[in-house]
Design a protein around this nucleic acid. Structure first.
Length: 739
RNA sequence: GACCGAUUAGCUCAGCUGGUAGAGCGCUACAUUGACAUUGUAGAGGUCACAGGUUCAAGUCCUGUAUCGGUCACCA
């Protein structure tokens, strides 16, 4: 019929081909500068005093590749960013990457071992750091171009890397300020030592694994009156006490006595102490206290002023005592001790129990608790909040980091829309202990502390004079990540970005990251700025395979988002991820669904073709007389807009996505277009003109509403629309329909 | 051990403050070369895990149970 009408771009005669549009559209957006709110203001897209909307991208590992989890987060955040930008807010989404220190160093070391048969000690600290850095830089482009591929409208002019100079200054400044306040201290305490990774790790990097182990019941020697039970007899050469419950009648007579014994060739001195923590029902009701190799025992020794705390296991999980255990690995030592117990006829019982043992998340190594001189963040020490904008905390009031972290959420400064995760957060805060922030690897932010002849100096740069030696440890990655919402905005300088864009509006992490990252951002932002880092935490679920399993290398069930993009287009992938599942629940990734949304993109494409064809002879007139149906259609459209806006405000993206999908396909295409056909072909010119106007209205509004979800196809269409239909050259910065 | 989530159509999931069970995919039948690498119309299908309770009314609120999944903690 009208297919050859010149005003219909030829493009629409073929199905929508994502490959042909996506990259050039991204380039068009990026070059427009509108990802940058300052330029939006400059060009009149946003008012200079418009409300701001900020998200900081959770930085992917600089050496990583995009996986579906990222794809989901990118799509989710981008949808909000685009929505808010269209609302006319000064909208900023800050990109960045993370050094992922331990993982990145491990990978470089592995390659070093494989290719050159060298260890890090062979090439030295400086060379290793150099290599890790260049490795990180090399891989950077991969992940960044993949984030772009997702259509993420990030302000690249503000790109940050956790190890770049500005972030380094931020980290050192943060450290120093907390050090000066006494909130960072150096202390000899039990740490989680990973013998495999040769570093300390934090409590949160521990994974408990259930295993069968033997529980042995025995006496230290024939002369010792009390039997104890343990699954780690090799540590008993480090015992300095036996603890019993104060009310346990069996042992009261021994309390306070000290025994000098020889256990497995090692002389030990054991004092019997009474402590309420001991469960009289468990085992013999008596517990051998090994202060140097158990956190609980260390604390117990503190309570009873036991200062003698011999270390009997070293960093390589080997015994350091003399005698028959000398130099043995802990597992071998365990066997040797049991042999000895048998020889001496001291072993009373051996039973198999299931036990959770602590392993390192990254290396899988079995954690060996060791006393070490480490740096800590004190979460219970009182300090004065000089300046506070956190609801419920007054400027000038005294608090602790722990209290502040609780208050930030309790007082509503940070809101977690899903109540259930709020509970998890409080649970975690309650159990929060001092945070060990030093790591014994070489790649990362070096601890900004220098030593010289017993003197200690903490500062943002090295002290004057010779002979100062910097602490050899680096900081936990999460220390710098915790500063992310404001270090990316230029802190510690008092930048206008901080003034304008902090606190950020929301953060949308997966639930597994809640304690690791979210709470630490609240800690840092609270202490350094007196602000919350974000007003909302919208926790989302994990992307899983069709059987509900996590994606993993060992299962070989991985799906490369880039493959999906090649096959179905970015828009389809985004819709497939965003619709169908309530935020917070895990997503089962279904390729078929993505396929369905590819068809949808094409549907929108064809709707456009039809509308453009139908309005080819449209002439705008001053007084349009709408029919009753016309008015109903326009009213419905308004209501839809209202609902979708509401869903955005309530973070119910999945509902918004489904609504616009349903409207476009089953209302606009199935009902409105069909019903328009006779009117358009009819003789009533006025009615026809009115309907043409309605169709234009429906199409442009639908494109706007769909744009946050499917930015490419909507923009591709927008670019082909005649200028008089549009309120802006780029759909990306057109204004959100009013309602 | 504590806490949390899930349980609704064959599959994947919605269902907000209680008011006659919904979507997508799949399936069946019919129609259609149409604006549509098809699409449209119609249809089949569910004791909303189970047992109690509150209510005029419960998928929805309360109590308990079961199964699956998760998080945290931990007894040596």
């Amino acid at each position: 019929m009208h297919e050859e009408t010149p005003s219909i771009p030829e493009l629409f005669l073929k199905p929508y081909d994502p490959q042909a549009h996506e990259d050039s559209l991204y380039k068009l957006w990026e070059e427009s500068g509108f990802f940058n709110p300052d330029i939006c203001v400059e060009k009149g897209i946003a008012a200079p005093d418009a409300e701001t909307f900020t998200i900081v991208l959770p930085p992917p590992n600089v050496t990583g590749v995009l996986h579906l989890g990222h794809a989901y987060e990118d799509a989710l955040q981008d949808a909000f960013v685009r929505y808010n930008r269209m609302l006319g807010k000064r909208t900023l989404w800050v990109p960045g990457t993370d050094s992922a220190a331990i993982a990145t160093q491990a990978r470089v070391e592995k390659n070093l071992q494989k290719d050159e048969k060298l260890t890090r000690h062979d090439i030295g600290r400086e060379e290793l750091v150099k290599r890790v850095n260049s490795f990180a830089k090399e891989s950077e482009n991969t992940i960044l171009s993949q984030v772009r591929k997702m259509g993420a409208s990030l302000d690249w002019s503000r790109y940050a890397y956790t190890l770049d100079e500005k972030r380094n200054t931020a980290v050192f400044t943060a450290f120093k300020r907390m050090y000066d306040e006494g909130l960072i201290y150096r202390g000899n305490r039990i740490v989680n030592w990973d013998p495999k990774g040769q570093t300390t790790i934090s409590d949160d990097e521990i994974v408990h694994e259930e295993r069968q182990s033997e529980l042995y019941t025995f006496k230290y020697s024939k002369d010792f009156p009390i039997s104890i039970s343990t699954s780690r007899p090799e540590t008993k050469v480090g015992d300095t006490a036996v603890a019993v419950h104060p009310d346990d009648a069996r042992y009261t007579q021994y309390i306070g006595q000290t025994f000098s014994l020889t256990f497995c060739d090692v002389p030990i001195e054991v004092t019997v102490i009474a402590d309420k923590e001991v469960d009289p029902e468990f085992g013999t009701g008596a517990l051998g206290v090994t202060p140097a190799h158990s956190k609980i025992d260390w604390d117990m020794a503190d309570r009873h002023n036991i200062t003698h705390r011999p270390q009997v296991i070293n960093e390589y999980a080997k015994m350091t005592v003399d005698g028959r255990l000398s130099g043995l690995k802990v597992e071998a030592a365990r066997i040797a001790v049991v042999e000895w117990l048998n020889e001496e006829c001291l072993l009373e019982k051996e039973e198999t129990i299931t036990q959770n043992i602590a392993t390192a998340e990254r290396t899988g190594g079995i954690i060996e608790p060791l006393p070490k001189l480490q740096w800590w963040v004190d979460v219970n020490r009182e300090f004065v909040m000089k300046h506070s904008e956190i609801p419920g905390i007054e400027s000038g009031s005294t608090t602790t980091l722990k209290k502040m972290m609780r208050q930030a959420v309790e007082g509503g400064g940070v809101s977690i829309p899903q109540e259930r995760f709020e509970k998890t957060y409080f649970n975690w805060i309650t159990n929060l202990r001092d945070w060990c922030i030093s790591r014994q690897i070489w790649f990362g932010h070096r601890i900004p502390v220098w030593y010289k002849d017993g003197e200690i100096y903490c500062g943002v740069s090295a002290p004057e004079g010779d002979g100062w030696e910097q602490d050899s440890d680096v900081l936990d990655t999460w220390f710098s990540s915790a500063l992310w919402t404001f270090s990316t905005l230029g802190w510690p300088e008092q930048t206008t970005d901080i003034k304008n864009f902090h606190p950020t509006n929301f953060m949308s992490p997966a639930y597994e990251i809640l304690p690791l990252w979210v709470s630490r951002m609240i800690l840092m932002s609270g202490f350094h700025l007196g602000q919350v880092p974000f007003k909302n935490v919208m926790i989302h679920g994990l992307v899983r395979d069709t059987q509900g399993r996590k994606f993993s290398k060992s299962l070989n069930n991985g799906i490369d988002p880039l493959d999906m993009i090649t096959k179905y287009g970015t828009d389809a992938l985004r819709m497939g991820l965003l619709s169908g599942t309530a935020i917070g629940n895990d997503i089962r990734f279904d390729e078929q669904k993505v396929g369905g949304y590819k068809k949808f993109a094409n549907k929108v494409w064809n709707i456009t073709r039809f509308v453009l064809t139908s309005v080819a002879d449209y002439k705008s007139v001053d007084n349009i007389t709408y029919s009753e149906t016309d008015n109903k259609i326009l009213k419905d459209l308004q209501e839809l807009t209202q609902e979708i806006s509401g869903d955005f405000e309530k973070f119910a993206l999945y509902l918004a996505a489904e609504k616009i999908y349903h409207y476009i396909w089953h209302e606009l295409a199935d009902v409105i277009l069909e019903e328009s056909k006779p009117i358009l072909a009819g003789a009533d010119t006025a009615a026809k003109q009115a309907r043409q106007q309605v169709l234009i209205e429906c199409l442009t509004t639908s494109l706007k509403l769909l744009h946050p979800f499917m930015p490419y196809v909507t923009e591709a269409i927008w670019q082909e629309l005649p200028a008089q239909m549009k309120d802006s050259e780029l759909l990306m910065v057109s204004s959100w329909p009013v309602h």
